[in-house]
Computed example of a mutant assay.
Amino acid sequence: MRIFISTGEVSGDLQGSLLITALKRQAAAAGLDLEIVALGGEKMASVGATLIGNTSEIGSVGIWESLPYVLPTLQMQRRAIAYLKQNSPDLVILIDYMGPNLAIGNYIRRNLSHLRVVYYIAPQEWVWSLNSRNTNMVVGITDKLLAIFPEEARYFQQRGAKVTWVGHPLVDRVQNFPSREDARAKLGIAEDVISVALLPASRRQELKLLLPVMFQAAQVIQAKLPNVHFWIPLSLEIYRKPIEKAIQQYNLRASVVSDKTQEVIAAADLAITKSGTVNLELALLKVPQVVLYRLHPITAWIARSVLKGSIPFASPPNLVVMKPIVPEFLQEKATPENITEAALEILVNQECRNQILADYEEMRQCLGEVGVCDRAAKEILQMLPNFEH
């Protein structure tokens, strides 16, 4: 049986790899030979997917920021469509990656209507839908939608999609993270050291817009807390040089590490982080965090003009329960002063920490039980023709 998966960016590659691992395990148990072909990244390739294109570095947020990626994205779409025309798979799985995946799904519906399509981790239309166009398209191209949030499941179900809520895959992923003690021992962090994770980027634009403000805040925190040490895990190795250069420039006590993201996050007393999937990982590991995000000023202006304040929050932990669990600073509010103040408050005020941890518990209830990837894999395999289970 052949499954084609399409996803993009660092987070899509991670989610794809977790799903593939579960699919292969269940297929093997059922005596099914499974071939997986994909648009994705190294993580998916490492668990057995054959890549027809690497999309992990093609990613941006915003209209202005996406311009350099228009051509590479179109080339990937064409490559996927050419593959689907020549090698009809038994099933197509779309993971997030809205623009390209809606185009691929649309092509399938018009020209390869016999193909069945599963959307796993649908675009966040339930949070910030501007009009019904994209929502209708998601519903129209999808035979089954596997939702990761209860609210997302409700939203798409009300609009006519066939939906199953499976829970959030990070619930499974954090089961394999080391304990705080083990992580600190592995990184060699002494007991009296305050460990702060700095998580600036999985995209190039984020490095440019978020790193300076994050490092300026770190500089002030370091001056006030002499026993602090900063850890920066790399999402992509290509970011090492600019980050190491900035560490010297700001004179930070900081370590840059590859392939140790789990240890860095698990060992942290606090994270200063961009908005994204990592916010949920931190919440599930009970690490307090300060979240910031900046877009290009043109994108921010367009977003404000169009959305007119309709997005209450940006970070997933706050969005899940629609309340400010963690401090988040967007655009012009993402200043070194605001970040420093919020970070120091969490580090020195036990009451503030306890409140965040209590709110994390409430949020955790909305993410489902362990076994998410297996539930998703089971739903997917049951859609294969002639699958005996």
Results as ranks from 00 to 15, higher is better:
His229Ile: 13
Ala38Ile: 01
Asn54Val: 06
Thr335Trp: 03
Asn386Cys: 05
Gln248Arg: 12
Arg180Ala: 03
Pro336Phe: 10
Pro200Gln: 08
Thr261Trp: 04
Leu282His: 08
Lys286Val: 01
Ile121Glu: 07
Val118Gln: 08
Lys241Met: 12
Glu152Asp: 00
Gly160Met: 10
Pro178Asn: 02
Lys224Asp: 15
Lys333Ser: 13
Glu206Tyr: 05
Gly59Arg: 07
Val163Ile: 05
Ser17His: 04
Ser17Phe: 01
Val264Trp: 04
His114Pro: 08
Phe387Met: 11
Pro68Asp: 15
Pro336Glu: 13
Arg25Lys: 15
Gln289Gly: 07
Leu210Lys: 09
Leu67Val: 14
Pro385Cys: 08
Ile356Ser: 07
Asn251Gln: 14
Glu125Ala: 12
Met98Tyr: 10
Gln124Tyr: 02
Tyr239Thr: 02
Ala283Cys: 13
Gly105Ala: 06
Phe156Ala: 01
Ile232Asp: 12
Cys373Lys: 02
Leu234Pro: 10
Gln350Gly: 08
Gln86Phe: 08
Leu211Trp: 03
Ala217Asp: 07
Pro233Glu: 05
Ile3Asn: 01
His389Val: 11
Ser235Phe: 12
Gly41Thr: 01
Val306Thr: 12
Ala267Leu: 10
Arg25Thr: 15
Gln205Trp: 03
Ala266Thr: 05
Arg253Thr: 13
Thr7Asp: 00
Arg240Glu: 15
Glu337Gly: 06
Pro72Asn: 06
Ser305Gly: 13
Lys186Glu: 14
Leu34His: 03
Phe387Gly: 08
Asn134Lys: 01
Gln86Trp: 10
Ile272Glu: 00
Leu67Met: 13
Pro200Ser: 04
Gln382Thr: 11
Thr142Arg: 02
Ile298Pro: 14
Gln75Asn: 14
Gly48Gln: 05
Ala223Met: 13
Ile194Asn: 07
Gly53Ser: 13
Ala82Arg: 10
Met98Cys: 11
Ile302Trp: 08
Ala266His: 05
Gly99His: 11
Ala266Glu: 03
Ala122Gly: 01
Leu252Glu: 11
Thr277Trp: 08
Gln216Cys: 10
Thr73Asn: 11
Ser275Gly: 12
Val321Met: 08
